[in-house]
Structure formats: C-alpha cells, structure tokens
C-alpha cells in the first residue's frame, strides 16, 4: 500500500507524521527539539518543492510512506490522486491519502512561514519545533489510527483521511 501524508508545505506536520509512522520518533513521550530537527526533510522543502512527492521509507508492513506539500489545494490534490489511480487501473484501496493540516497549530504556521517563506530559519525553526511538540499527541493518535486500519486491511472508507 502507498500512504501519502500531505500538508501545506510538506515540511513540518506531514514529515513529523511520516517519521512517527516509520518509528523514527517515539510514541511514548514528546521528542526533544534535536530529535525533531534531525528528521530528514524536516523544515527543508521550499516553495519550488511544493507538489513534489518525497519518499520517506517503508514501514514494518511494507507500506511505502511519502509526504507532499500541496498548498491549500487539499481537495484538488486528493481528487487528482484518486482520479489518476482510476485512470491507471491502480486499486484505490491501495492508495491512502492522509491530510495532516487539521493538526497544524498557529505556532507551526507562523514558524513555518518565517523559516520557509521568509528564509529566517534561526527565528522560525524553534517556533515551528515548539508547535510540533504542542501538536505531537494528536499526530501520534492520527498515525496510530492509520497503522491500525492499514494493518487490519480495513481501509475501505479511508482513501481520504483527515
């Protein structure tokens, strides 16, 4: 199965969710700032990377985990991906699109804008990291839900999740 976590820029919330999914971040405590910053692609993509799929790794069930930034076009992106799966005869049940935006808080928005758009990484990165810590349990809960559903094969109604 292909699981795509998507958010505005593909730099913070979706990357964190993918890292939790792949076991790179703990699920029994809130990780430290260093652990969060050391995730591959965390706070790295810029505007020209929006729309590019980034492969993060394979989970313990062999699912391929990707992240993508799709600006404010969540529905357009999901319609496109599901439509493409139909056009190419790919079973829609093997493609799971997970919108992480509902778990994004104002610290992540302000920190992400400052770091990625304005290029003031030294100011923005600590703010966005604090935001990730604040939203961490919600992201872990989302990922756990995805893992339980994919492991049991109960993804019939889960092609689009948020």
């Amino acid at each position: 199965m292909i699981i795509i976590y998507h958010c505005y820029g593909g730099a913070h919330s979706s990357v964190t969710a993918a890292a939790v999914h792949l076991g790179w971040l703990p699920t029994d405590r809130i990780p430290g700032s260093d652990e969060i910053i050391s995730i591959p692609y965390f706070d790295r993509p810029v505007t020209r990377d929006h729309g590019r799929l980034q492969f993060m790794g394979n989970d313990e069930f062999g699912n391929e985990i990707y992240v993508i930034g799709r600006r404010n076009a969540a529905r357009v992106f999901e319609n496109m991906a599901i439509g493409m799966a139909q056009v190419y005869g790919f079973c829609p049940r093997k493609l799971l699109l997970v919108n992480v935006m509902p778990y994004v808080n104002w610290k992540m928005v302000v920190g992400g804008f400052t770091s990625r758009k304005l290029g003031l990484t030294a100011i923005g990165r600590p703010v966005v990291t604090a935001g990730v810590k604040f939203a961490y349990w919600k992201i872990v809960s989302l990922v756990n839900r995805i893992k339980v559903c994919t492991a049991s094969g109960n993804t019939g109604e889960l092609t689009q999740i948020n």
């Binding site: 729309g51 590019r52 993508i68 799709r70 600006r71 076009a73 357009v76 493409m84």
Partner: peptide, 10 residues
C-alpha cells in the same frame, strides 16, 4: 503545483 504533483503521482 498540480502539474508537478500529477507528474509525480503518475
């Protein structure tokens, strides 16, 4: 953005 995303998904 969607052109890039469509290329990648295909």
């Amino acid at each position: 953005m969607l052109k890039r995303a469509a290329d990648e998904v295909i």
